[in-house]
């Protein structure tokens, strides 16, 4: 909303006490109702998700969050989110760990290094990557990437780094947590890199030129000027990427294989909050089963809203410090 300047404020109300037109009242009323509706929608979503999860909330309470069991057999029903929370945490954090340096590298390349002829095409290519639907990435993940990782990358990582519990023996199926991590990395890469690129472009040229004039190398200039200047924004971009990774359901469902145990072995199958919901969309057997799935959705909603609001808060703080508003470009 950077460019909403203050002069429009006076344009809006040019004369005090001018005649009130019916059309003004109608347009303002209808448009205001739409804005109120959009705001109410957020609250309605939260309320309806809580409402749908209520049978499960009243049966299991908050301990649902740390119980590691998912048994839909009627009569012995027991549900808990722990294994899915674990799956969400491990997939999204490792994906972020892989995507962050790559994304920042791309952004640096595009802002500081790339020859002019490459700058435009590579920027649009990276943005094209963001436009590929998750189901198509998932299709590629399950039929091409998964088998390739299982037969080449996973055995190699296991033999080289098998002493780390993360790199245990590969499972026989093509699906694994590791495949999901790679798919998520691909999906959050364009988001983090395009936000970082905008941040780096926003670093004042006189600061960069000043550093270079003092005799720094280009990397020293980046480390000493660009990174400190963009630090808050990069943190926000990473948090947004994390939120995106946590919320991705379809592509993860396609490649992660499913499972209800907590396993540190990345080459085992697993499930995340979102992928569990997506995988069970037609298989829920009882009301309690459905309510427990919605409870998973509620946890996911809380996590992703937390990430989103944290990122907004950081962005607004940064904008205030820099004396510019950069907010509106979500």
């Amino acid at each position: 909303m950077a460019s909403i300047d203050t002069t429009s404020e006076s344009a809006r109300r040019p004369f005090e006490g001018r005649r009130v037109h019916l059309g003004d009242v109608v347009l303002q009323g209808v448009a205001g109702a739409a804005a109120a509706g959009a705001t109410a929608l957020v609250l309605l979503i939260a309320w309806k998700v809580v409402d749908g999860a209520r049978p499960s909330i009243s049966k299991f309470g908050i301990s649902f969050v740390w119980h590691d069991v998912w048994n839909p057999v009627v009569g012995r029903e027991a549900y808990g989110a722990a294994s899915f929370l674990f799956g969400t945490a491990i997939t999204s954090f490792v994906a972020l760990l892989l995507a962050a340096p790559l994304a920042i590298g791309i952004a640096l390349f595009l802002t500081e290094l790339a020859p002019r002829v490459l700058r435009g095409p590579v920027t649009s290519l990276v943005e094209t990557l963001a436009a590929i639907p998750s189901v198509v990435v998932g299709l590629w993940g399950i039929l091409v990437l998964g088998p390739a990782l299982r037969s080449h990358v996973e055995p190699w990582l296991h033999s080289a780094l098998g002493w780390i519990p993360l790199f245990g023996p590969p499972s026989s199926a093509g699906a694994s947590i590791f495949t999901a991590i790679v798919v998520l990395t691909i999906m959050i890469l364009p988001i983090v890199s395009s936000i970082s690129r905008e941040l780096f472009l926003g670093v004042p040229a006189e600061l960069k030129e000043g550093a270079l004039a003092l005799g720094t190398t280009r990397w020293e200039m980046v480390r000493g000027v660009v990174f400190p200047y963009a630090r808050g924004g990069i943190a926000a971009a990473l948090i947004l990427g994390l939120g995106r990774a946590m919320g991705e359901a379809i592509a993860v469902t396609q490649v992660i294989g499913g499972g209800t145990t907590i396993s540190w072995n990345l080459f085992n199958q697993g499930d995340t909050l979102a992928s569990k919901i997506a995988a069970e969309y037609q298989g829920a057997t009882s009301n309690l089963d459905v309510a427990s799935l919605i409870y998973l959705g509620l946890i996911l909603l809380v996590l992703s809203l937390g990430a989103n609001i944290a990122a907004q808060w950081i962005v607004r703080g940064v904008a205030r410090r820099h004396g510019v508003t950069r907010g509106g470009r979500a």
């Binding site: 909303m1 804005a35 979503i45 799935l293 909603l301 992703s304 609001i309 907004q312 509106g328």
Partner: peptide
């Protein structure tokens, strides 16, 4: 003030995972 408030609501709405929107419409 309202502009900022509704703007924040729009950002929050954009951050709701697609699958949760599905659950919401299902539940509603």
């Amino acid at each position: 003030r309202i502009r900022n408030g509704v703007g924040l609501a729009l950002d929050v709405l954009a951050g709701v995972p697609a699958i949760v929107v599905g659950i919401f419409v299902y539940s509603l």
